[in-house]
Design a protein around this nucleic acid. Structure first.
Lengths: 242, 242
DNA sequence: CCCGCTCTGTGCGTTAGCGTACCGACAAGG
DNA sequence: CCTTGTCGGTACGCTAACGCACAGAGCGGG
């Protein structure tokens, strides 16, 4: 949004050893990911892996009856398509764009070959995958024990960390689908946050006014995931020259 | 319980190429895992990885306020300690023995070296890890959407698959801790199952009388995890000569 | 400028699960 | 045999979240 887009805005790409980055660079393809776009469906064989820069992608499980629940969220810190190098080549969840933006993509097969040939690359990916596992585990805990209010805070923070700035573009309906709750539940929770002066909400546009407060109101899940992610991926400052 | 214990009762060990198995064999150490034993605590650096044969280990997250929730369960189909080769060397969850039994263990460092040297071994482990990820994801969904009744069915089936026979030794209190619900909730659900003639319950001893019915009463989560695990790990029949 | 759509707010009644409290039933061990 | 502790069953009020229905609010296109 501010800078010209470049692959190194994705933290994993930025963390690659120069040699690996150069090997991959010619095959990276810039893709615009519009809101709601499905990168892959449950059971699909993955064609590409995606490295978001300013897009956010949700991993969403959709039940037989149409209900849904977000499993994890991926932004500039990660990649979509870990099943490619984990070996399964597909997953039981859907990957859907939650916030429009840009990603760099790479043919799955090519990426897999690279990963298998270069252990440094593989280890970076596995570290990220463990961070993703932590996020999933914490999502399970959060779904069990925490209130919608707390979960909304956690979710806003996770999204905020993956975007530049303090504003988000998401309707309450969309958030409800992600959290797997009723839209009205989100309305209530967001209303409370608004009255506390923590956010300002208006027709799909959220502005975060008081992030520290948001962190206080969130359950421990956000902090656990953040801390573990930082531990596992202690790379580079967020910005880098392109 | 029936056969003399041997490492190949663990499916991953059994699936190893003979050459890899022989390399590892001298370092495998048989360990009895008593109920409630903590194999590692949140944040601990893993000393060993464990390959259960007839033991079951729960990956449990314990919250700041003492509440808990099971993230996944590991039995003879898998191993405890994926963080060892994922790179983190620790996780945010606790590994606790849910059903006493035997496991074979191996020094974490040695295992890590083996995995890094032999890509066939690594790929087997990554496949298992993806299956574990699927289980975690489904746990998150289940916690969000399904009733205690359904979750109890799912949980019994997961445990049953990891044991020989049709009986389990677990108190309702223990099950409640795993599911992250009240003990009374489990009492109610188990009472209903008992009245339907699906199980017989008595002081920590459960006998499953009608497994097909149990599968009907369970939510889709059980089937999803089982199908995906079978897809990812299509190895060997459960029994093998030792 | 107004129509129509999307998004948000609100108000029900209903229910699953929680917290608490307590009691009986069974098993093991002195 | 009786005590003691663990385990399972039950009851009661409470709350968060649900399903449903509908009303106002803002924005964009004709």
């Amino acid at each position: 949004m501010t800078d010209a887009p470049c692959p190194q805005q994705n933290h994993l790409l930025a963390a690659l050893p120069a040699e690996a980055r150069e090997r991959i660079a010619p095959y990276l393809e810039r893709a615009h990911l519009p809101l709601g776009k499905v990168l892959y469906e449950s059971g699909d064989t993955l064609r590409h892996v995606y490295f978001p820069t300013d897009a956010i992608v949700s991993l969403l499980y959709v039940m037989a009856n149409g209900g849904s629940a977000e499993i994890a969220v991926v932004g500039k810190e990660g990649l979509v398509g870990v099943a490619m190098f984990m070996g399964g080549e597909s997953t039981t969840s859907r990957a859907i764009v939650q916030s429009a933006g840009t990603a760099y993509r790479l043919l799955g097969k090519r990426f897999k070959d690279e990963v298998n040939r270069h252990s440094e690359l593989l280890h970076l990916m596995l570290h990220y995958t463990q961070a993703l596992i932590t996020q999933m585990a914490q999502t399970a805990v959060c779904n069990r024990h925490h209130s919608i209010d707390q979960q909304l805070c956690r979710w806003l923070l996770l999204s905020l960390d993956r975007l530049a700035g303090d504003h988000l573009n998401m309707t309450q309906e969309l958030i409800a689908n992600m959290l797997g709750v009723r839209r009205e539940g989100v309305t209530d929770a967001a209303g409370r946050l608004q009255q506390l002066g923590v956010i300002a909400y208006s027709r799909g546009h959220i502005k975060v006014l008081d992030r520290p407060r948001l962190e206080q109101l969130s359950c421990e899940c956000y902090a656990v995931v953040k801390k573990e992610t930082d531990r596992l991926l202690p790379y580079l400052p967020p910005r880098r020259p392109c």
